[in-house]
Amino acid sequence: IFVNKGISQRLISEVEERLILADVGIDTTSKIIDRLKDIQHKITPGNEQQVLDLLKHIVYEILRDGNFHLNLSQLPCVIMIIGVNGVGKTLTAAKLSKRFKDQGMSVLLVASDTFRASAITQLSLLAERAGVPLFKQKEGQDPSSVVYDALSLVNKRDIDVAIIDTSGRSHTNFNLIKELQKMRKVCERLIDGAPHEVLLVLDATTGQNAFSQAKVFRDNLKVTGLSLAKLDSSSKGGIVIAIFSELGIPVKLVGVGEGLDGLLTFSPRQFVEALFD
């Protein structure tokens, strides 16, 4: 009945199912289960709570060394918000701007999505709600020129943080990836150390494709962190474990709701608890 001394096969199957249903992915799930099997001599047969605690510990150990802080060591700080269509970039940009404003910093939101219908209006309304100034230009304008003009302004004024909201795009669209690269170069040219953060927004309800998104954006743009939006949904966002362990990108922010205060700093401890909830 008890194969593997400490853990029954039934329990291993249950663990596998739970992790896969949490979008952890089959490869990472196998690695976690292998690690569990390595330390199963520590497990009292039949003690399921102990197995759960060990699992939490294993996942926590994978995530704990990430750098969860936003890089504000150099001001003015420039943050680019990127990601595929509809994941929550615009709302995240607004949430982040409110967080910095509440901390007493002077913030500028930059509306560089000059493509999608009503993107600029949407961010204007959110900026107004957040009480943060918005830099915007004409729809249809080259987003790089919007970034150029916005950051030229940052250099003249006493602005601490510039948050650049970008338009959604598929990571499989080569031209749109190039467009982001061009915007990144503008940041590098105009402001020392910019962009200090390139945050990739992922929708927590996304499955294994999130890994592909992270890999492509990282390989082409250097991503400094993830913002995991919509974690208030029923999805667990387990794919971020693989993204950190294999691509080295830590989660820095978590989006939990439509309100401007629905933004949390990533806590591996809380994430692990919720994962096995």
Binding site: I20, L21, A22, D23, V84, G86, D203, T205, T206, G207, Q208, N209, A210, S233, S234, S235, I239
Partner: peptide, 12 residues
């Protein structure tokens, strides 16, 4: 439904 939706697609 977004084609990239993961395991929760069924519950949704």
């Amino acid at each position: 439904v977004d084609a990239m939706t993961g395991q929760e697609a069924v519950n949704i």
